[in-house]
Design a protein around this nucleic acid. Structure first.
Lengths: 220, 220
DNA sequence: GCCGTTCGATACACTGGTGTATCGGGGAGT
DNA sequence: ACTCCCCGATACACCAGTGTATCGAACGGC
């Protein structure tokens, strides 16, 4: 039993592949129609497999849902710091004139890193909806949310201090409010039939909120 | 055809009754499991009827969903002004000492009037989720949301002026932010397994937001 | 190059839900 | 009290989806 498990690791390469294809397909389908309305067949069809492949890789639709969540968020957190650096470069072109624009660029930019596109927003919304009804999912969702907020709060605080600005509230609280507002803006954007990226007009509430939530740091 | 319609109006009394029972039952079931997961049988069973009664009164589940929305919100808007008066009475016991407490009482009180209990919050969340995927529902939802915000904004502005406070942002914008924050707070409260009423701790973000969003009116 | 293992496809039995068509009972009007 | 009519119950046909059990084929190890 010691060496017999070696082949299992070898054969699992193509298996990983179909697993990923299933995850990608399911991500889209879930975003489009929701978990309940999505049938296993819909997912496997889009992935180019049959239901047999699904049941060979996952026990249930919900398990697949969680697999997506894990996958997406480990993936997303990877490119986070570099994304923030890029935003800071944009917000501080030469480094000297610090305007309200810089604040808006940073806030909407950083928040945009966590809610990358409309499909992710829809998935997130679905996650929340499920959590509201299933206590077991709720704990997963709560943990996920907490992690995101803590991460974003740290990023935001650091980025803002670069332009000499700080929150007037506890950073985590301010971040929660900003994320909530950003998510709401994304949703109204989607409700109006918009595409992946919310326009500046959609984000009006967010930028206004950012202004009210911040203040100049006392000169050191 | 002129007098022949009189009986129709008479017989429709019991019909109205079963219609209401169906609406009430569906409201609960939708809140519990969502629109898709809810079966017509679940609803009629809880209402004490069979599926025959349902199809005699409604064309589809979705139509029933809209009927609920109409019903609840015409009902809710009825007692709104008196509710605000009561809140003001609490916030201004004698009328003189105006504190931050008064502000919090007013904001959370008024917002609490529009999101009465957890079932309504869940229903609303379900409404949004559906709207995000169905453009036809989206326009209905958008209209509903706009109406609510306009109403609440007017109420809030009037109530706040009573304690000499005003928004630092356009009232509708401030109201949108507050409602969003309140809804989020309600959701985290529900996610934590809480009951109908969010605690003061749950509303911490909302009250903090209310403080940043407002300022003293210049003395006249 | 052969064999064993395992992955994914196919087939099947079954469940839960839908919508329609029909029927019986009870209330309203005279 | 009688009649008519409408509401809601019952029965039926149908469909979409699920999960399992079986099978063929491809891949890796020896």
């Amino acid at each position: 039993m010691s060496t017999a498990e070696q082949p299992a690791a070898a054969t699992s390469r193509s298996r990983e592949h179909t697993r990923e294809k299933l995850i990608d397909a399911a991500f889209e389908v879930f975003a489009e129609v929701g978990l309940n309305a999505a049938s296993v067949e819909q997912i496997t069809e889009r992935a180019g497999f049959t239901r047999g492949a699904f049941y060979s890789n996952f026990d249930s639709k919900v398990e697949l849902f969680f697999a997506i969540a894990d996958d997406k968020y480990t993936r997303a957190s990877a490119g986070l710091q570099s994304g923030v650096d890029a935003i800071l470069a944009e917000a501080l072109p030469v480094g000297h004139p610090i305007t309200a624009d810089a604040l808006e660029t940073i806030v909407t930019g950083v928040l945009g890193l966590t809610v990358v596109d409309s499909k992710l927003a829809l998935f997130e919304s679905e996650f929340e909806a499920l959590a509201l009804r299933d206590p077991e999912i709720a704990v997963r969702y709560a943990g996920h949310t907490r992690a995101v907020i803590a991460g974003v709060a740290a990023l935001l605080e650091a980025a803002l201090s670069r332009i000499g600005v700080r929150f007037r509230l506890p950073p985590e609280q301010a971040t929660r409010l900003l994320i909530t507002a950003y998510t709401a803006a994304m949703k109204t954007h989607l409700l109006a039939g918009g595409g992946d990226q919310p326009s500046a007009a959609d984000l009006g509430d967010v930028t206004a909120l950012a202004l009210v939530l911040t203040e100049r740091m006392p000169d050191s």
